[in-house]
Every structure is written in C-alpha cells, then in structure tokens.
Design a protein around this nucleic acid. Structure first.
Lengths: 337, 337
DNA sequence: GTGAAAGCGCTAACAA
DNA sequence: TTGTTAGCGCTTTCAC
C-alpha cells in the first residue's frame, strides 16, 4: 500500500498536478468547485504532501534544530519543553541534539542539521571557543544563541547571571549571614565566572569576604564531585553560615550530603541554588533559588528565530532579568554588629 | 552564499555526480584516489548532502517520530530521553509530538509525521479508542506502541502494571499494614484499572479489604485534584495506615498536602508511588515506588522499531517486569494479630 | 483558471 | 571504474 502522491490526487480529481498544488495552497485563481474536488480526492486517498519533495523545490522544512550540551540536565530539558511548545504553536517542529559537552559532537550535530535543511537553529554552545568553530559551518543560516557562549555579532537570548547572584547574595547578607561559601561549578565555566562575580560584588559592598569552592581540572561528573565535596565540608569542622550553590543540581547534592551527615538545612546552614529547576519547588525540598525564567527564555528564542527566518528582523539581543524565588532553605541569623 | 550541491563537488573533483555519490557511500568499486579527491572537494566546499533529496530517491530519512500524551509528565520526559539517546546511537533522530491527551491532535501529529517521511513511529496512545482511529492512517509504517493502549495485532513494549502494584501491595501487607488506600488516577485510565487490579488481588490474598479513591469525570488537572483530595483526607479524621498512590506525581502531591497539614510520612502514614521518576530519588523525598524500567523500555522500543524498519523482524511483544524500589516512605506497623 | 514542462539534489539502472 | 540517464514528488514559470 503505497502512499498517495499529488499525481494520484490529480488523476482522481480530473485536473493536473499543478492545479492540485495551487488548490491546496488555497490560491485565489482556483475555482471553488475545483478546490472542492481536490479536497475530496485528498480525503479519499488519505493524501499527505511529501515535505521532502516540497523542501527540495526551495520551500522551507518547518523544522528547527536545537543543540544543547546536556539534555539530562533538567535546566535544558525544561527549556527544550518550552521551545518545542512555542515552535509547535507556530507550526514548526524541533529536532533535538545533545553535544554531551564534546566540541566534535557539536560540529557533527550541526552538519546533521544542515543536511536536514532545517530552517533555523537554536544553540546553547559549550564554550566561546567551540562557538567560534561552528559559526563558520553555518553560513547565514538563521540562528539564535541561548545563554552566554556566543560572540558579539550573533543573535542571542540570555539571563544576566551576575545580576541574579548579586541579588541572591544581597538576600543572604540581609538575613545576617557573614560567612558565605560559593560552592561548585567548573573552573572553565563562564556561567560560573559570572555568577561568582555578582556574588563577590554583593559581598564586597557589604564589606564581607567571600569564599569559593570550584571544580578544577577535568571533572566529568560534576554532580558526584559536588556530593563528595559537600560530604567533606560537613565532616565536622566549622560550617559556613550559608552556602550559595552554583546551580540547583549542585544544591540538591549538598542537601543529600547534609542529610547523610545530619546537618540540618536551614537550621545549621542556609542554602540557595540557581536555575529554579522543577525539583526546587517540590515538597520537602523548598529550595530558595534564582529563576532565569527559562521557559520565557526559550519562547523568546523561538520568536526571534522565526523573525529571522521570515526576514522580519536581523540580529536581536534579549536580556532577561533573573528573579530570586524565596522558599525555605535560608534562615535569619543574629549577625555580629 | 548558497550551500554546495553534489554537482559542485563533482565539478571541483573532476568527476560525475554519480561518482561522488558512490565515493561518499564508500563503495568498493571506486578507486582510493578518486575517493580522496572527492573527500577533498567536499571539505573545501563544506559540502553536506541534502537529506530531503536523498529521501526523495526512495532512501530513508533516518528520522523516527515519537508521540506521547503529555511530555510535561516526567515519566514521558524520561522515556523520551532514553529513546533519543538510543536512536542517536543508531544514527537516527527523533521528532517529538505531544498530543495533549487530545485525540484530534493525535491524528494531526501522525499526519505531520507521515508528511515528513519518517521511517517509523513510537506511540504512547491516549486510549484504545484513539489507537483504533489512527491505526488506519499509518498504513504499514513501522510502529511500536509504548504502554498499554494498543490492539493485539500491533508491536508493543509494556510493563506489567498489575504485577507491579501486586508486589507493592504485598510489601505493604508484609510491613503489617491493613488499612490501605489506593489513591488517584482517572477512572477512564486503563493503567489505573490494571494497577488497581494488582493491588486488590494482593489485598484479597491477604484477607484485607481495600479502598480506593478515583478521579471521576472530566478532570483536566489531575495534579490539582490529587492535592485537594489529599488535603481533604488529612483534614483530621482517621488516617489510613498506608496510601498506595497511582503514580509518583500523585504521591508527591500527597506529600505536599501532608506537609501542609502536619501529617508525617512515614510516621503517621506510609506512602508508595509508581513509576520511579527522577523526583522520587531526591534527598528528603526518598519515595518508595515501583520502577517500570522506563529507560530500558524506551531503548527496547527503539531497537524493535529499527528491526521492523530494517525488515529483520515482524511483530514483537516485550513485557517488562516492574520492580519495587524501597526507599524511606513506608514504616512497619504492629498489625493486630 | 488551468495545463505542460522544467528543475530542485540525489541515487540507481544501465552503458561504456 | 566511471559516466549518462531517468526519476523520486513537488512547485513554479510560461503558455494557452
């Protein structure tokens, strides 16, 4: 049972293939009567136009590519969901690719997207270096970058990481915390760099010295590293008054270690995360964290990309202001005056 | 800057388009020298073959479709991840579609998949009724169903829901629980029906009477419903000794309500979930639940689908045995002898 | 208002 | 071993 083609429809409707094409496109020059016959024939034959053939004729595929470093990270998973939903509303589908933080894989994924004639691409690049390499491959394919790894001439959508951590740090200071530890993130991560910067600035303004703990070297398993470091931290020595985790994932690992060591949050140590992934809002977790509005961020990225594809806009830059989401993992301490 | 085509490569390499095609396919009849020239030309031109054209020539698209009722449900999200990963290993990409539990949307998604010439499709159908309707549309397109909504002549991969809840109920009985409440799920859900069946069987064998609470009528927001019902349950009257939640999502909502009412789990009431979504393993949550091995299930589905596509197998049926994952939300009670 | 013909980029059959 | 030719299903001129 072969699929029906436009010729089959044309034959059944008693017109030419060209007319069928025009009728389905609802062109004004075609008679209502002809359109009716064509639609009827399509229905009878269960005709579905072949998009491959259509795209070959220079049409669009209505497929977007999305490339992220790690889809098992709930942050990207959530953003992907928002992107797929928004794209679907506009009649686009999205092809997802996971670079696994491997620059070679990133290039391969882009090749594969190109081969599929996607109309545009959304990329969360691994690093500015990798970004520079794949930029060339893409030619003038419409593209919007997600997050911070891009060069200045690209379109991008990002949240202000420094501002987010600045606000969170101010919150901790306001609660009376003076000994605050910035915990986690890879030392190669620009995201971490920016978050640490906002953190330090707030502390400096408050006249407080900050500490930080960073994953240096080739740490593949950042989660495992965080867990082990937290276990070490909670081994018995003096605790910091508050911990500012690089991300919610890290914060969760800290929570896990705390539980194991009998350290109570927030009674013994306050904790704030970053990203506001869905885990953070769960009962018993109630993690205070910084929201990057990742759903909105994904939606905007799709909108900007479609504007580029449809030639309505050139380069765009969108900056979202993060927002502190206060839950229950921080307590007020009586600061020394 | 137009993308290079096979003709450009052929011209630059000084051979015909057909030779380029063969060289890239690494066919034995082509000289090493020719292959080298072709590869070089491809490199120079940044040539990426056009998959649309290739698929038009009767080739495959190497794209699989995946259709689920609700991707915001972590259960499906997790399975999708497993499916994408396994498919990527085999050189396939997957196009995701969300039916939003709407039968019309389900049909539209399938049409859109057909139009894209996907090689095969993985479906978690909304209901046996919807399944019957879309079955016709697909002709003999390779297809594997995920879960329980399919007719008998299809290929499918599913976990034994009754066996899973049977085991969980036995576990609760073994801990001494006698007053156990089966909580949640839509009354139209076959999944719920099967889980309830296993639950009842175990209780009957233990000489215990079971109770159950079901979402009847057109409940769109099952999560909200669960939360409200749990709040009601925890209002102050006598508590059941244990609650068997229809799913982990439901269990989490029960946890949330319990927290709000000051009901302690497992001290005041034991709780078990179903699905073993990633939330269940988080610190502070530690939900005892039934694992359906959803990652494995997704992988198997991909493998079976590819076997069908490559003509190596016809209809397949895979049944996975669920497994109880004991964490910390159930306690032993001193049963009346 | 509609049809005939050309061509999108590629592969497969047949020649050479 | 390689080139030539035809055709996949569709859209888009250009005629009529």
């Amino acid at each position: 049972m072969k699929r029906a083609t436009i010729k089959d429809v044309a034959a059944l409707a008693g017109v030419s293939a060209a007319t069928v094409s025009r009728a389905l496109d609802d062109r004004p020059e075609i008679t209502q009567e002809t359109k009716r016959k064509v639609r009827e024939a399509c229905r009878v034959l269960d005709y579905v136009p072949n998009i491959a053939a259509r795209s070959l004729t220079g049409q669009k595929t209505h497929i977007l590519g999305m490339l992220v470093p790690d889809i098992s990270n709930p942050y990207f998973a959530d953003m992907a969901t928002a992107i797929e939903r928004r794209a679907a509303q506009e009649g686009y589908r999205v092809l997802l690719s996971n670079s696994m933080r491997d620059p070679e894989q990133e290039l391969k994924s882009i090749d594969s997207f190109l081969a599929r004639q996607i109309d545009g691409i959304l990329i969360s690049a691994i690093s500015p270096q990798s970004q520079a390499r794949h930029r060339a491959l893409m030619g003038n394919l419409p593209c919007v970058y997600l997050g911070i790894n891009h060069s200045e001439e690209c379109s991008y959508v990002m949240a202000d990481n420094a501002a987010g951590s600045y606000e969170a740090a101010r919150y901790l200071l306001g609660l009376g915390h003076r000994d605050i530890l910035f915990f986690g993130g890879r030392d190669t991560s620009r995201t971490r760099e920016l978050r640490l910067k906002g953190f330090r600035q707030a502390l400096a303004e408050g006249g407080v010295e900050g500490r930080d703990l960073t994953a240096a070297g080739d740490i593949r398993q950042l989660r495992q590293w965080s867990y082990e470091q937290a276990l070490e931290l909670f081994r018995g020595g003096p605790l910091p008054s508050a911990i500012f985790a690089f991300s919610d994932i890290t914060a969760l690992k800290i929570m896990e270690a705390a539980e194991e060591r009998g350290v109570r949050i927030p009674e013994d140590v306050s904790l704030v995360g970053y990203d506001n992934i869905s885990f953070a809002a769960l009962p018993r977790i109630h993690l205070t964290t910084v929201s990057q509005h990742k759903f909105r961020l994904g939606e905007i990225a799709v909108e900007r990309l479609l504007e580029q594809i449809q030639g309505r806009r050139e380069r765009t830059v969108d900056l979202l202001r993060p927002e502190l989401v206060v839950r229950s993992t921080c307590r007020r301490v009586s600061g020394t005056p």
